[in-house]
Each structure stands twice: as C-alpha cells, then as structure tokens.
Design a protein around this nucleic acid. Structure first.
Lengths: 123, 123
DNA sequence: TAATTAAACTTGCATTTTGCAAGTTTAATT
DNA sequence: AATTAAACTTGCAAAATGCAAGTTTAATTA
C-alpha cells in the first residue's frame, strides 16, 4: 500500500499553510525545486553545485524526503539518477513566484542581477 | 545606526528566493504572520494559543527576529505589547496565499474546513 | 495599598536538525 | 584492468528546536 504524505511527515495542524510548511518549510527544499523549475537541473551534482552550497548529507536527505512526499521522482539507474518534478511539484511554481517577487521587492542586490532573475523566472 | 537585515540574518546567496527563505523559511515565522494577517492576532498569548502550539522560547525568538528583520513592529508597554505587520510584512500576503492554495489543493482534510479557510483568506 | 493574577518572557536541559570533512561504493570511462 | 567521478554514507561538532518549569512586572482585585 502506498504511503500518504501524512505517514511520512508529521502535521502540526490541518491548516493548509501549516501543512505546506511542514513539507517544504525548511531552508533547502524550495531551492532544490527552484533549481529544477528554473535552472533545468536534474542530477545530484547539479544540485550540489548551486550557489548556496548545500552539503551532501542534507541534499541526500532532502532528495529522499521530496521523493517520499511526491514532489519529485527520478528515472535512471542508481548512479545516474535523473530527478524531475511531479505534477504536485510543479504546483509549487506559484509559491516560488510569490516568494521571488517578495525577495526582489525587498532585495538590495544589483538591479541588473534582479532583472536577470525576473527574466529567467518570467516575472 | 540602524541595522540592515543583512547584518541580522546571514544570506546564502543573492537569489531572491534563497534570501526570502533565509528570512521566513523556518517552520514558525509564516504561521505568526498568518495569525496576524488572517486571524487578527496581536499579542504574545494569542500567538501562543494557535493550533500548532509553538513553545514559548521559540515564539519569543521569532517575535524578536521578525521585529529585527522589519516584518513586524509593536506598540504598547513591555507587558502589554501589541504586534502589527509592517508594510514589508503585508507584502508576504501573496506568499501566504499561494502557499495556502497549494496546501488546499493537496490536502486530504475535510472539505468544509477547507472552504472555511478559503473564505477567511478570501481565496 | 497590599495581595493576586496573568502576560510576557527566561532558563535549563534533552532531542533533533544542520553543517562540515572525510570516506565509500559502483557505474561509466579510458 | 585501472581510473574517474557521481552518488551517496559516516562521524562528529554546532546550532536549532521542544518541553517543562520558573521569573518578572504591569494590571487587576480585595
């Protein structure tokens, strides 16, 4: 029998916001999703080489959790895994967009860089 | 001299998504913002009594951090503080909306309850 | 005004999560 | 057959979280 998300991740309440934060409300999960959605990354090493330098054990842990939750899946053999977003994973796109818009609005970063981000994200 | 956000919270990169997650990408911050935006909560004890039962030390820590970041402020005396969202805090509304919509879409919770949430959030 | 209440913290300690560095395994390449 | 390197794995220190209890002081009540 297929496990539901609730058996993997403990929910603090039934609130949809709280539940979503229980799934991806940590510092790394949404960055992996970002890399898949906007940078076309699919492999362990591609994720590993993101600017934010995630460590190997955390990356491994998150890839497993995101897979269990059903936000991503993979194809390919053990040492050549290719990860991709599921339908559910793609549903996080609006979240990433609003998060990015907030970040851009309150960022002090270089305007040229922020324009690039907007272009990549089609905002 | 007033501290900028960057002196309080360490950024992992200049990416707006990453920066936003550095600010509110933990399990509690957005729930406090939710309580303020949608449930009209303003005091320590009101936050403490949310369904998700945050513990006192974490709540205290988050209220300080969110204030330092500039997402919330307070009025009133030491033992009668009333917290409110800043303009920047209000800018998180679209984030909460998209997070809630994702949560609702993938929730297995009671439909009547989810309808109530949508109504409260005006979704 | 003195005693009581309670809101807003504070502290201590156990558990969990994260971060860092190094090592291991095995498919693919040379 | 030896080498490379992608994908983990392990160990340990540091930080964040959770829980229970205690403290402080403004506001209320007697």
């Amino acid at each position: 029998m297929k496990k539901g998300v609730k058996e993997i991740i403990e929910k603090r309440s039934e609130c949809p916001i709280s539940c979503t934060m229980d799934l991806v409300g940590d510092k790394w999960s949404l960055l992996i999703i970002r890399d898949m959605l906007y940078l076309g990354k699919t492999t362990y090493n591609e994720f590993l080489n993101s600017r934010e330098s995630i460590s190997t054990n955390i990356l491994n842990d998150r890839l497993i959790k995101l897979t269990e939750i059903g936000l991503i899946t993979y194809t390919g053999t053990a040492k050549r895994k290719k990860y991709e977003l599921t339908k559910m994973g793609h549903d996080l796109k609006p979240v990433l967009e609003s998060v990015a818009l907030f970040g851009i609005k309150h960022s002090t970063a270089d305007k040229t860089f922020l324009q690039k981000v907007k272009k990549v994200m089609d905002l």
